[in-house]
């Protein structure tokens, strides 16, 4: 008991930034600048605010678009870039600022040359997975006198990434197993998938009504660690829709048929799974086609 109390709590926040809507936000002017600037600056400010809370606190920032994911901070470049701090600015804050500006800008510019970033989904699932990997590594490398309190904060503005459904779910359940809380701050759009993720891992999901005030939302809702959130009044949890979509018509179903072999979901019963060709033998021999006898051996 005693040494448990003595263990220093180290709070690690891994911010996952979805960079795909950058263009959209860049086109929205705001106070002589653009919404994109506001968002990115807010994220830097939030990261630094987290670091400022306690000297042991750790920060990781990962950005992704539809092509790649990238570690912005700590920078994976190896050779640390020179950065310029304002007079009186804490060194680390300046490094965060510089690394994020550089890394994020590069990521978006690289994508811009390919020119079809909006055609496909952002790799949010992959970025979250990288965040989990990083958390795992930090956890292992941490000395015994420290206790890691990891969480992931997803800041996104894109719709549900349908292509990555499985990746998302894998990430959520891994996070749940690893005791990593997933928080999510959505701008403009709502994400049913991320809602589920926050619910599964016990994190906070917030769909913010005005993007301009992002930093305020972040500081108010997401800066407090999950352990002390129970003591403050936060937006109540949203009702999460856990319905799954059927594989055949992509409709959300309340009750569906699930293939016992490959777990495909169907909204109507059919005698054969269209994903894995498994035949379902119910007590209706008349319907089963004669062909099935050949396949019966395989099962």
């Amino acid at each position: 008991m005693e040494d448990k109390e003595e263990r220093i709590e180290t709070s690690l926040v891994a911010i996952v930034i979805d960079a795909t809507p950058a263009k959209k936000f860049a086109s929205q002017p705001l106070d002589g600048s653009s919404m994109m600037n506001r968002i990115f600056d807010s994220l830097i400010a939030f990261g630094n605010a987290h670091l400022m809370q306690a000297s042991h606190n750790k920060l990781a920032i990962i950005a992704c678009n539809s092509k790649s994911t990238k570690f912005l901070y700590p920078s994976m470049d190896g050779n640390s870039r020179s950065y310029q701090n304002r007079p009186g600015q804490y060194d680390m804050f300046a490094k965060v600022d510089s690394d994020v500006r550089h890394g994020l800008g590069e990521l978006i510019l690289n994508d811009l040359t390919d020119n079809d970033s909006t055609k496909s989904d952002s790799l949010l699932g992959g970025a979250m997975a990288r965040a989990l990997c990083y958390i795992h590594r930090v956890q292992r490398e941490l000395s015994l006198s420290h206790q890691l309190k990891p969480r992931v904060l997803v800041v996104s503005g894109s719709c549900d990434s349908a292509l990555q459904y499985m990746t998302f779910m894998n990430v959520f359940f891994t996070a749940q197993k690893e005791n990593v809380v997933i928080d999510c701050c959505m701008m403009d759009t709502d994400s049913g998938l991320l809602q589920q993720g926050c619910d599964i891992t016990g994190g906070q999901y917030l769909h913010i009504p005005s993007v301009a005030g992002l930093l305020e939302y972040l500081l108010w809702v997401f800066l407090p660690s999950p352990s002390c959130r129970s003591k403050i009044v936060l937006p109540p949890p949203t009702k999460v829709d856990y319905r799954a979509a059927c594989f055949c018509h992509h409709k959300l179903v309340d009750i569906g048929w699930v293939c016992s072999v490959c777990l495909s979901i169907f909204c109507k019963f059919s005698i054969m799974c269209t994903t894995c060709n498994t035949e379902f033998k119910l007590n209706r021999p008349a319907i089963v086609p004669a062909k099935s006898k050949k396949r019966a051996r395989i099962e």
């Binding site: 959209k24 909006t118 952002s122 990434s161 292509l163 459904y165 799954a244 594989f247 992509h250």
Partner: peptide, 15 residues
């Protein structure tokens, strides 16, 4: 489930 939807058919409305 949703992968059979062609991904460019408006799944992502960012653009």
């Amino acid at each position: 489930p949703p992968t059979t939807v062609p991904s460019h058919a408006g799944v992502n409305k960012n653009g």
